[in-house]
Protein backbone atom coordinates (compact mmCIF):
# COMPACT_ATOMS: atom_id res chain seq x y z
CA UNK A 1 0.00 0.00 0.00
CA UNK A 2 0.99 3.65 -0.13
CA UNK A 3 0.67 4.17 3.60
CA UNK A 4 3.72 6.06 4.79
CA UNK A 5 2.64 6.03 8.43
CA UNK A 6 1.18 2.91 10.01
CA UNK A 7 0.26 2.91 13.70
CA UNK A 8 -1.16 -0.36 14.92
CA UNK A 9 -2.55 -0.95 18.42
CA UNK A 10 -0.05 1.38 20.07
CA UNK A 11 -0.17 2.14 23.80
CA UNK A 12 1.90 4.50 25.91
CA UNK A 13 1.57 5.32 29.58
CA UNK A 14 3.26 7.88 31.81
CA UNK A 15 3.25 6.34 35.25
CA UNK A 16 -0.36 5.49 35.90
CA UNK A 17 -1.82 7.84 33.29
CA UNK A 18 -2.54 6.28 29.93
CA UNK A 19 -1.81 8.73 27.09
CA UNK A 20 -2.40 6.30 24.19
CA UNK A 21 -4.39 3.11 24.52
CA UNK A 22 -4.61 0.80 21.54
CA UNK A 23 -4.32 3.55 18.93
CA UNK A 24 -4.46 2.51 15.27
CA UNK A 25 -4.51 4.62 12.10
CA UNK A 26 -2.65 5.12 8.84
CA UNK A 27 -1.56 8.15 6.83
CA UNK A 28 -0.11 8.73 3.38
CA UNK A 29 1.27 11.55 1.23
CA UNK A 30 -0.60 14.80 1.65
CA UNK A 31 -1.76 16.62 4.78
CA UNK A 32 -3.43 14.57 7.50
CA UNK A 33 -4.99 16.44 10.41
CA UNK A 34 -4.88 14.98 13.92
CA UNK A 35 -7.82 16.39 15.81
CA UNK A 36 -8.53 15.97 19.47
CA UNK A 37 -9.24 17.91 22.65
CA UNK A 38 -6.45 18.74 25.09
CA UNK A 39 -5.10 15.59 26.68
CA UNK A 40 -6.31 13.34 23.86
CA UNK A 41 -2.75 12.16 23.22
CA UNK A 42 -1.80 14.17 20.12
CA UNK A 43 1.55 15.33 21.45
CA UNK A 44 2.40 11.90 22.78
CA UNK A 45 1.67 10.44 19.36
CA UNK A 46 3.77 13.11 17.61
CA UNK A 47 6.73 12.48 19.92
CA UNK A 48 6.39 8.78 19.27
CA UNK A 49 6.42 9.32 15.51
CA UNK A 50 9.38 11.68 15.90
CA UNK A 51 11.29 8.79 17.56
CA UNK A 52 11.71 10.86 20.71
CA UNK A 53 9.52 8.48 22.71
CA UNK A 54 9.18 4.71 22.47
CA UNK A 55 5.80 2.97 22.56
CA UNK A 56 5.05 0.56 25.42
CA UNK A 57 3.38 -1.85 23.01
CA UNK A 58 2.05 -2.04 19.47
CA UNK A 59 3.64 -1.64 16.06
CA UNK A 60 4.72 1.51 14.20
CA UNK A 61 6.05 1.79 10.65
CA UNK A 62 7.26 5.08 9.26
CA UNK A 63 8.21 5.34 5.57
CA UNK A 64 8.61 1.57 5.65
CA UNK A 65 11.02 1.62 8.61
CA UNK A 66 10.57 0.35 12.14
CA UNK A 67 11.44 3.06 14.72
CA UNK A 68 12.73 0.45 17.16
CA UNK A 69 15.50 -0.71 14.82
CA UNK A 70 15.86 1.93 12.12
CA UNK A 71 15.61 5.12 14.15
CA UNK A 72 18.46 6.78 12.28
CA UNK A 73 16.94 6.07 8.86
CA UNK A 74 13.69 7.68 9.99
CA UNK A 75 15.41 10.67 11.56
CA UNK A 76 17.24 11.31 8.30
CA UNK A 77 13.89 11.70 6.52
CA UNK A 78 12.03 13.54 9.25
CA UNK A 79 11.09 17.15 9.92
CA UNK A 80 9.61 17.83 13.36
CA UNK A 81 8.07 20.88 14.94
CA UNK A 82 7.38 20.11 18.62
CA UNK A 83 4.50 21.72 20.47
CA UNK A 84 5.65 25.06 21.91
CA UNK A 85 9.28 24.67 20.93
CA UNK A 86 11.86 26.79 22.71
CA UNK A 87 14.81 28.32 20.90
CA UNK A 88 18.27 29.37 22.01
CA UNK A 89 17.84 32.91 23.29
CA UNK A 90 20.62 34.82 21.61
CA UNK A 91 20.50 33.00 18.26
CA UNK A 92 19.58 34.74 15.04
CA UNK A 93 17.11 33.00 12.74
CA UNK A 94 19.96 31.95 10.48
CA UNK A 95 22.13 30.69 13.35
CA UNK A 96 19.33 28.60 14.81
CA UNK A 97 18.36 26.97 11.52
CA UNK A 98 22.05 26.45 10.75
CA UNK A 99 22.50 24.73 14.13
CA UNK A 100 19.66 22.32 13.38
CA UNK A 101 21.10 21.75 9.90
CA UNK A 102 24.36 20.57 11.47
CA UNK A 103 22.41 18.20 13.71
CA UNK A 104 20.79 16.95 10.51
CA UNK A 105 24.22 15.88 9.29
CA UNK A 106 24.75 18.66 6.77
CA UNK A 107 28.49 18.93 6.92
CA UNK A 108 29.58 21.03 3.94
CA UNK A 109 29.32 24.65 4.97
CA UNK A 110 28.49 26.14 1.58
CA UNK A 111 25.77 23.61 0.75
CA UNK A 112 24.39 23.82 4.27
CA UNK A 113 24.14 27.59 4.21
CA UNK A 114 22.37 27.42 0.84
CA UNK A 115 19.84 25.00 2.31
CA UNK A 116 19.37 27.18 5.40
CA UNK A 117 18.73 30.18 3.17
CA UNK A 118 16.28 28.16 1.07
CA UNK A 119 14.07 27.06 3.98
CA UNK A 120 14.15 30.52 5.54
CA UNK A 121 12.98 31.90 2.20
CA UNK A 122 10.32 29.25 1.92
CA UNK A 123 8.61 30.40 5.12
CA UNK A 124 9.00 34.05 4.12
CA UNK A 125 11.57 35.05 6.73
CA UNK A 126 14.46 36.04 4.44
CA UNK A 127 14.18 39.66 5.57
CA UNK A 128 14.68 38.85 9.24
CA UNK A 129 17.21 36.05 8.87
CA UNK A 130 19.86 38.12 10.70
CA UNK A 131 17.51 39.11 13.55
CA UNK A 132 17.67 37.53 16.99
CA UNK A 133 14.84 35.07 17.51
CA UNK A 134 13.81 36.66 20.80
CA UNK A 135 12.95 39.90 18.98
CA UNK A 136 10.47 38.16 16.64
CA UNK A 137 6.69 37.98 17.01
CA UNK A 138 5.03 34.70 17.97
CA UNK A 139 3.89 34.04 14.42
CA UNK A 140 7.37 34.60 13.01
CA UNK A 141 8.87 32.37 15.66
CA UNK A 142 6.44 29.63 14.65
CA UNK A 143 7.67 30.03 11.08
CA UNK A 144 11.27 29.59 12.26
CA UNK A 145 10.11 26.29 13.70
CA UNK A 146 8.57 25.28 10.40
CA UNK A 147 11.69 26.35 8.51
CA UNK A 148 13.90 23.99 10.53
CA UNK A 149 11.36 21.20 9.96
CA UNK A 150 11.82 21.63 6.19
CA UNK A 151 15.61 21.26 6.22
CA UNK A 152 16.87 18.56 3.90
CA UNK A 153 13.51 18.14 2.17
CA UNK A 154 12.13 15.51 4.59
CA UNK A 155 9.63 12.89 3.42
CA UNK A 156 7.72 12.98 6.71
CA UNK A 157 6.85 16.28 8.39
CA UNK A 158 5.30 16.35 11.88
CA UNK A 159 3.82 19.64 13.04
CA UNK A 160 2.41 19.70 16.58
CA UNK A 161 -0.20 22.47 16.85
CA UNK A 162 1.53 24.83 14.44
CA UNK A 163 -1.47 27.16 14.28
CA UNK A 164 -2.10 27.52 18.02
CA UNK A 165 -2.03 31.13 19.15
CA UNK A 166 -1.94 32.68 15.69
CA UNK A 167 -4.27 35.47 14.62
CA UNK A 168 -6.65 34.82 11.68
CA UNK A 169 -4.41 36.41 9.07
CA UNK A 170 -1.33 34.48 10.20
CA UNK A 171 -3.49 31.34 10.15
CA UNK A 172 -4.34 31.90 6.49
CA UNK A 173 -0.68 32.32 5.54
CA UNK A 174 0.12 29.21 7.49
CA UNK A 175 -2.47 27.13 5.75
CA UNK A 176 -1.12 28.20 2.38
CA UNK A 177 2.40 27.30 3.46
CA UNK A 178 1.45 23.94 4.94
CA UNK A 179 -0.63 22.84 1.98
CA UNK A 180 2.32 23.70 -0.28
CA UNK A 181 4.57 21.56 1.93
CA UNK A 182 2.09 18.70 1.72
CA UNK A 183 2.10 18.54 -2.05
CA UNK A 184 4.81 15.91 -2.20
CA UNK A 185 5.34 14.83 1.40
CA UNK A 186 3.51 13.16 4.24
CA UNK A 187 2.50 15.93 6.63
CA UNK A 188 0.88 15.18 9.97
CA UNK A 189 -0.54 18.21 11.66
CA UNK A 190 -2.10 18.18 15.10
CA UNK A 191 -4.65 20.78 16.07
CA UNK A 192 -7.76 21.24 18.09
CA UNK A 193 -9.23 23.60 15.49
CA UNK A 194 -11.61 21.98 13.03
CA UNK A 195 -11.26 24.92 10.62
CA UNK A 196 -7.62 23.97 10.05
CA UNK A 197 -8.67 20.47 9.09
CA UNK A 198 -11.57 21.61 6.91
CA UNK A 199 -9.35 24.13 5.14
CA UNK A 200 -6.24 22.14 4.34
CA UNK A 201 -6.31 18.45 5.24
CA UNK A 202 -7.05 15.66 2.82
CA UNK A 203 -7.64 13.31 5.70
CA UNK A 204 -8.58 13.69 9.33
CA UNK A 205 -7.95 11.45 12.33
CA UNK A 206 -9.83 12.19 15.53
CA UNK A 207 -8.26 11.14 18.82
CA UNK A 208 -10.13 10.82 22.07
CA UNK A 209 -8.68 9.43 25.30
CA UNK A 210 -5.72 7.99 23.41
CA UNK A 211 -7.85 6.14 20.86
CA UNK A 212 -8.73 6.79 17.25
CA UNK A 213 -12.48 7.45 17.06
CA UNK A 214 -12.57 8.55 13.43
CA UNK A 215 -10.41 8.35 10.31
CA UNK A 216 -11.52 9.64 6.94
CA UNK A 217 -11.86 12.75 4.80
CA UNK A 218 -13.04 16.06 6.30
CA UNK A 219 -16.18 15.57 4.20
CA UNK A 220 -16.81 12.24 5.88
CA UNK A 221 -16.26 13.89 9.25
CA UNK A 222 -18.92 16.44 8.31
CA UNK A 223 -21.13 13.52 7.25
CA UNK A 224 -21.07 12.16 10.80
CA UNK A 225 -23.45 14.95 11.76
CA UNK A 226 -25.67 14.72 8.69
CA UNK A 227 -29.35 14.73 9.71
CA UNK A 228 -28.41 15.48 13.31
CA UNK A 229 -28.12 19.25 13.30
CA UNK A 230 -31.19 21.45 13.42
CA UNK A 231 -32.27 24.91 14.30
CA UNK A 232 -35.10 25.72 16.71
CA UNK A 233 -36.31 28.64 18.79
CA UNK A 234 -35.77 26.61 21.98
CA UNK A 235 -32.77 24.81 23.40
CA UNK A 236 -32.79 21.12 22.45
CA UNK A 237 -30.40 18.28 21.62
CA UNK A 238 -27.29 17.18 23.49
CA UNK A 239 -25.20 20.16 22.41
CA UNK A 240 -26.96 23.40 21.83
CA UNK A 241 -25.96 27.03 21.52
CA UNK A 242 -27.55 30.30 20.50
CA UNK A 243 -26.59 31.52 17.03
CA UNK A 244 -26.15 35.11 15.87
CA UNK A 245 -29.72 35.15 14.53
CA UNK A 246 -31.18 34.32 17.95
CA UNK A 247 -32.15 30.73 17.15
CA UNK A 248 -30.56 27.72 18.79
CA UNK A 249 -28.34 25.39 16.84
CA UNK A 250 -28.75 21.88 18.20
CA UNK A 251 -26.78 18.68 17.71
CA UNK A 252 -28.16 15.28 18.65
CA UNK A 253 -31.27 13.31 17.72
CA UNK A 254 -33.69 15.76 16.11
CA UNK A 255 -37.46 15.72 16.76
CA UNK A 256 -39.67 14.74 13.80
CA UNK A 257 -40.66 18.31 12.88
CA UNK A 258 -37.10 19.73 13.15
CA UNK A 259 -35.68 22.13 10.54
CA UNK A 260 -32.48 20.30 9.61
CA UNK A 261 -29.47 22.41 8.60
CA UNK A 262 -26.31 21.31 6.76
CA UNK A 263 -23.65 20.20 9.24
CA UNK A 264 -20.09 21.52 9.42
CA UNK A 265 -16.90 19.60 10.11
CA UNK A 266 -17.06 21.07 13.62
CA UNK A 267 -20.51 19.51 14.15
CA UNK A 268 -19.19 16.11 13.15
CA UNK A 269 -16.22 16.49 15.47
CA UNK A 270 -18.35 17.59 18.45
CA UNK A 271 -20.72 14.72 17.85
CA UNK A 272 -17.82 12.26 17.88
CA UNK A 273 -16.43 13.66 21.12
CA UNK A 274 -19.78 13.65 22.86
CA UNK A 275 -21.07 10.62 21.03
CA UNK A 276 -21.83 8.56 24.14
CA UNK A 277 -24.03 11.34 25.49
CA UNK A 278 -25.84 11.58 22.16
CA UNK A 279 -26.47 7.86 22.03
CA UNK A 280 -27.70 7.87 25.62
CA UNK A 281 -30.22 10.60 24.78
CA UNK A 282 -31.77 8.71 21.85
Amino acid sequence: MNDTVVVDDVSKSFGRSRALSGLSFTARKGVTGLLGPNGAGKTTLMRLLATVLAADSGRVRLLGWNPVYDRLEIRRRLGYLPQEPAYQRGFTVFEFVDYVAILKEMVDRRARHDEVRRVIGEVGLADVSGKKIRTLSGGMRRRVGIAQALLGDPELVLLDEPTAGLDPEQRLRFRALISRIGENRTVLLSTHQTEDVAALCERAVVLKDGRCVFAGTPEELRGVARGRVWQSPRRAGVLSWRTGEGDFRNIGSPPADATLVPPTVEDGYLLLLDGDKVEAAV
Binding site: A50, T51, R75, L103, K104, E105
Partner: peptide
Protein backbone atom coordinates in the same frame (compact mmCIF):
# COMPACT_ATOMS: atom_id res chain seq x y z
CA UNK B 1 21.36 24.20 28.11
CA UNK B 2 19.58 23.38 24.88
CA UNK B 3 16.06 24.81 24.80
CA UNK B 4 15.54 23.13 21.44
CA UNK B 5 16.48 19.70 22.84
CA UNK B 6 13.30 18.10 21.53
CA UNK B 7 14.29 19.12 17.99
CA UNK B 8 17.86 17.98 18.61
CA UNK B 9 16.62 14.60 19.85
CA UNK B 10 14.70 13.96 16.64
CA UNK B 11 17.72 14.85 14.47
CA UNK B 12 20.03 12.12 13.17
CA UNK B 13 23.11 13.49 14.99
CA UNK B 14 23.91 11.08 17.83
CA UNK B 15 22.93 12.51 21.21
CA UNK B 16 25.67 10.52 22.94
CA UNK B 17 28.24 11.83 20.53
CA UNK B 18 27.05 15.39 21.03
Amino acid sequence: ADPAHEIAFAAPYSVVRL
